[in-house]
Design a binder for these strands. Structure first.
Lengths: 112, 112
DNA sequence: ATCTTATATTCGTTTAAGCGATTATATGAG
DNA sequence: CTCATATAATCGCTTAAACGAATATAAGAT
């Protein structure tokens, strides 16, 4: 499975780790990710597509939105450990989760 | 810990994965690795230094040889899982382990 | 049809990193 | 000291990939 190396390459960038960390919480659309991480739309989109090409996430289109969610199969074990045992000990990724919560709350108030 | 990202970058190259796989067996010198993986001396050395800078391996000098061994601390959980649950299911890495065995046998006969 | 919003793509630039080939350094042997 | 061996470092080249900025596409809304 050549895909293992692709997965590892996808994991070797901080922005993509931050995105994965968020997607371990729930399915999100591109704009949730740009808002939460405070990155440009192009950057969010590009990294999501990179993760998709590595088979780590899948997408689902609904109206004008594209929702991304995890698509981790037998590689789940080590990536799970990476996320829960390593990433989530780090302040950056903890803050990102808090920012996600805040954003989703604001978003609901504003839009629904 | 910024080192987590360095570790992940170190894991995103096939040659370095093959080297790590070998080092999970035992401490090895540079020439063991070049012989086992059939790669150039410069290539083996460069990648070992990359792994060392990422704190995944440590070295120990003895006479004209440099021995490399694992130096994986709290990151061990996910890297362990990566190696044992993923890498070692792949033919390439299984073959490398067999080649290591064969090389170490030949080496003993020739040199000691 | 027009306008807005969400997402993807392209362009041009910059940087990291891989490679083979070669050279430098250091240790030990004779 | 000289030579051989083990390892590291350097050079020049090539490729992957990250970035911001700008543009394209596609779906709704009016």
């Amino acid at each position: 499975m050549e895909k293992l190396l692709d997965a590892l390459k996808a994991l070797s960038d901080e922005t993509r780790l931050r995105i994965l960390n968020l997607l371990f919480e729930k399915e999100l659309c591109v704009c949730d990710i740009m808002e939460t991480l405070q990155i440009s739309q192009a950057k969010a989109s590009r990294h999501l597509i990179y993760l998709k090409n590595a088979d780590l996430v899948k997408d689902r289109k609904h109206a004008q939105w594209v929702y991304y969610s995890l698509a981790i199969d037998e590689r789940i074990k080590f990536i799970d450990s990476l996320v829960y045992d390593n990433l989530r000990n780090l302040e950056l990724y903890q803050n990102d989760l808090q920012n996600l919560k805040d954003w989703l709350k604001r978003k609901t108030v504003n839009c629904d």
